[in-house]
């Protein structure tokens, strides 16, 4: 892991778009009243990270720093949490998040073949985004729609009973 301090954004170079996003995040944190229990501020961290990721799409260094400061904890602690949980990412991801369910039910019904086909067509590996920023390919563990196995999710939409053959049709919906 390399230190990325030199890449860190600072408030002076923020675009107006970013400033609005930081405002939204600050408002959310204020609404939580984190200082009501000073020794337990940390308890709000994961909740705040969820909101921050939904605002920014990912959790860049500048956002991590902002959150650390508002909870009065170290940036290392914030980064430690982000790197631990698979839901959080500190890299920008594609606009359409394609996630293949790799739970057991989907596995025995052929999810690996679907994942291979997606990798082949998109030219990326699991956990990567296409260079044009359109697609992100990921795998997630069991969405609980086992009756439709194997399942692929594109953002919040569920595609059930997937096969390698259907991959092209699904991608086409998002290519226009």
């Amino acid at each position: 892991m390399s230190c990325q301090c030199q890449n860190a954004g600072n408030s002076s170079s923020q675009s107006p778009e970013d400033a609005a996003k930081f405002d939204e995040l600050a408002k959310f944190i204020a609404s939580l009243n984190v200082d009501s229990l000073p020794d337990r501020r940390r308890g709000f961290l994961i909740q705040i990270l969820h909101r921050a990721q939904s605002i920014f799409g990912y959790l860049p260094e500048s956002v991590q720093r902002f959150i650390a400061e508002s909870l009065n904890i170290s940036r290392a602690e914030v980064y430690g949490v982000i790197s631990f949980y698979s839901y959080f990412t500190d890299k920008p991801v594609g606009r359409y998040k394609i996630n293949v369910c790799t739970g057991t039910a989907c596995f025995v019904k052929g999810a690996p073949k679907v994942l291979d086909e997606l990798k082949r067509r998109l030219g990326v590996n699991e956990g990567e985004s296409t260079p044009d920023g359109r697609f992100f390919l990921g795998a997630l563990r069991c969405v609980g729609a086992c009756s439709l196995a194997p399942v692929v999710m594109v953002n919040d939409k569920v595609y059930g009973n997937m096969t390698a053959d259907k991959v092209a049709d699904v991608l086409k919906e998002y290519e226009a």
């Binding site: 961290l45 994961i46 698979s86």
Partner: peptide, 19 residues
């Protein structure tokens, strides 16, 4: 939670609630 299977273990779950 935020996508960690081990958080089903009770001590891990408690740490996760604590942020």
């Amino acid at each position: 939670g935020a996508g960690a299977f081990v958080c089903g273990e009770e001590t891990a779950l408690i740490h996760s609630i604590e942020g």
